[in-house]
Every structure is written in structure tokens, then in C-alpha cells.
Design a protein around this nucleic acid. Sequence first.
DNA 1: GCGATGATTTTGACATGTCAAAATCCTAAA
DNA 2: TTTAGGATTTTGACATGTCAAAATCATCGC
Lengths: 224, 224
Amino acid sequence: MTTSTVEDYLKCIYQAEQRSSGLISTGQIASALQVAPGTATAMMKTLADSGLITYEPYNGVRLTGAGSKLAAHVLRRHRVVELFLVEVMGMSWSEVHGDAEILEHAVSDRLLDRMDDMLGKPSVDPHGDPIPSPRGVLREKEYPTLLTCPLRASLRVARVTDQSAEFLKLLERHGVMPGNAIEVESREEAADTVTVKPSGGKAFTLGCRAAGAVQVEPNSGKQA
Amino acid sequence: MTTSTVEDYLKCIYQAEQRSSGLISTGQIASALQVAPGTATAMMKTLADSGLITYEPYNGVRLTGAGSKLAAHVLRRHRVVELFLVEVMGMSWSEVHGDAEILEHAVSDRLLDRMDDMLGKPSVDPHGDPIPSPRGVLREKEYPTLLTCPLRASLRVARVTDQSAEFLKLLERHGVMPGNAIEVESREEAADTVTVKPSGGKAFTLGCRAAGAVQVEPNSGKQA
DNA sequence: GCGATGATTTTGACATGTCAAAATCCTAAA
DNA sequence: TTTAGGATTTTGACATGTCAAAATCATCGC
Ligand SMILES: [Mn+2]
Ligand SMILES: [Mn+2]
Ligand SMILES: [Mn+2]
Ligand SMILES: [Mn+2]
């Protein structure tokens, strides 16, 4: 049986691999999971012995086929659970991450299937993160962020890549959530800010760091 | 933080205390949790050191106030989760116990409240087991079983005290589930059997061991 | 009162995860 | 080419849970 600790390590490596290509360093993993460097190194040996990763000492790790599949399933559980908590249980998108971090290790296949059915086999979670398929396939789309998208164009929020509850609550208050229409009014390089206007809401300002966590796509009018 | 292992031990002692008064032996705990006797002894020391039980070596243990409260909360989570899986997720009462055994350690207070609301603050789980209140109070009712109830009287199934999936599926096929009406047609001492007639179903026969796990109450006509 | 017997505890080991601190390695700058 | 500094690994410890097998206890029957 694979423990929840192992699942968290695999998921972490999987997500790092989505973003950068090449080997993932143990230091990166240690800091992402908030453990001491030596702890991560020890776990890399364990995972390598189990055939879930390949480990090149001093260089980094990479998931094997088995490891990747397992990780994708953990991530799938995480994201389906998050959506379930929002859609069925009526929780806020700002408070589901912590619960999902635990439940992703506790939900049986049977239960996950029920959730998936109940939600209509969704393809993205409440933050716009794509949900791996039941077979473990994940397709990430590339979107511009509030820093790189066109100014004064009609946009749709596609994804928010920052789980911080306070940040998500702020966006929610302004109506900036996946699916909603917004436009970028202006960018002030000097001030390091971006001013955003939600359709049907008041304009407000974000720092560039925060703005970079909001991904958008051209609002082609479609999408319910 | 209290681990899921500790929670399972406390719940086990709590349920044993409900049935017998006096101290609970370490042997009883070990066999209920399927661990070696020495393992249970070691854990009793740990729990005693944490102030969750009082431990009299060679004699047995008893929950303290703190231990009892904690155990009641675990049991509450278990039973609310079971009911949620049946009522909301559409799972069978025969397959929820295993899932609940895990989820009882993973569900946050927030999520449990949502489930409880959604279910209308229920007082019993799908097996008729009473649900401890949010404050940790449990009131068990005494019911006669199929072995002790009157013959040929109109009865209502109140509770089934055996989690075995096969047994529950059998009862379900015959319509013997909490709330349903049945009567006992006959008992054959020599054959060690009881014959039961569900209202609107065919009579069938149970061994006495199994019959003792079905609790009933006089069918006073009320109850939806 | 005295064992025999069955339950309980003790002992010594092992598996998993974790840390702090020491040792080692790698690389980029001089 | 050398070396200093940062990253990585190693080492030694500890916490939790678990087991098998040996030691101990408690008590019931004689
Ligand atoms: Mn997790
Ligand atoms: Mn998410
Ligand atoms: Mn459990
Ligand atoms: Mn139950």
C-alpha cells in the first residue's frame, strides 16, 4: 500500500514536472513540502527503490511510468474532491484546498466515481486547474496572465494559480473567478500594478505578483 | 494532533464501554482491532500518558472525560459519513462501512457540519446506530432482537448490529432494513433458526447468530 | 496452599518519516 | 586551476506503530 506521505511526494514531483522539463531537484521538493533537505533525499531513495522515480544523486529525480500514473490519480482525486466540496457541499473555493489535501488520500475509487458522475465528469476544478482523466492523462492549456494579455479586451478568467485563501477570497469579492468576464484597464510598470475591471463590477488593482496568478483567455462569447 | 490510529483505539474502547460496564481488557481491544496483544498494551500506555484513558495493568482500561469526548466525535463522524454516503452519494448500506472507517479520520469539522445540515441533523445512521450529538452525547436505546421479540407481531426494524457486507446485502434483498416492517413467523430451537417475514416480501430463515444482530421495535404504526 | 493455564506485559526488532548537524559534492568565479 | 559557497547527502537520533516470542501475572481447580 502506498502511504499518504508517498502520495504527496509523487504529486509534488508530478506538478513540478508539469512546469519545468528536466530533472526535479531534491531541494525543490523539500521546500515545496516543507521538510528538511535530508528528509527529501531519504524519501527519494525509498521512491526509487519502489520503482516510482528514477533518482540521479546530486542531479534530481523524474517520475517513472508507474510513479506518474499514481501521481496523476492523486491529483485527480484532489481536484474532483475540491469541485465536489464547492458544487455539492456549498463550500467556498477559498477553503477547499486544505480539506482536499487530506481527502485526496482517503477517498476510495468507488466514492470518487460517484463524485465524478454527480459532477458530470468535469474537466476543471474550482480554480480552473485541469482534472486528470480516470486513466491518468492530464492536458494543461497555456493561457496568458493578467500581465501578458491584451489591454481593454474582453476576457474570461480561465484559471487561478495561487491557493492562498486570502487571495482567493479577495478575487471572489470582486467576481474574479473561472468563467467570469473581466478586462484589464491598465498596467503601471512603475507602480508594479495592474488594474482589472470585472464585467458588472468595480475596477480594482492588483500587484504584479498577484496578477501573474490569474490566467485568462479571449472572451469569444461562448461558454455558458 | 491525534493520529487515526489513536482515534481507532479510542472508538473501540468507547464502543466496548457502551456494551459492558467496568474495565475493558487489553485482549478485547487487541482482538477487536486485529493487532497483537503486546501492541494493544503498548498503546494503552501511550493513551494513559496522554490522559485519554486510565489504565490498570492486568485489569483493563477506561476512557477519561477527554478520551470519551474524543471517541464520541470519531464515532459521530463515522456515522454521519455513512449516512451521507448512502443518502447523498447513493451507495449501498452494505458498502459504506469500510469507506467510513477511513473518512472518519479525514473529514474536517466544517465538512462534517455541511453533511449534518444536508442530512437534516439525523439521529441514526443507515444501520440504525445512534449518532452522537455534536457535543459528544450518545444515547443508546435498548431493543429486542429477532431472538427475543414476540412472535407473529408487527415489528419495525430498528437496528442491525453486524457490518458484514454479505449479511447486509442479504437483508437488503429481503427488505430487512431500518424502518421497514417485518414479523417473526417462527423460531426453531432445535434447528437454531428463526423465520422472518418482511411485510410485502417472502419469508426467509436466519440462523440464530445472525438473527441476534437484528434489533426491532413494536410497530406502533407511526414513523414515515 | 499450589500449580497449571490462559491472559497480560515485557523485550528486542523492524518499518516509516522526520530532524539537526556534519560531511561531501558541484560549480561558478577568480 | 583553484577554491569558496551553496546544494545535496550522510549520519545519528527520535517518534509512532507494529510483531514474535519470552517473561510474568492472576486465578481457578484440586
Ligand atoms: Mn495531501
Ligand atoms: Mn485546485
Ligand atoms: Mn477508522
Ligand atoms: Mn453504521
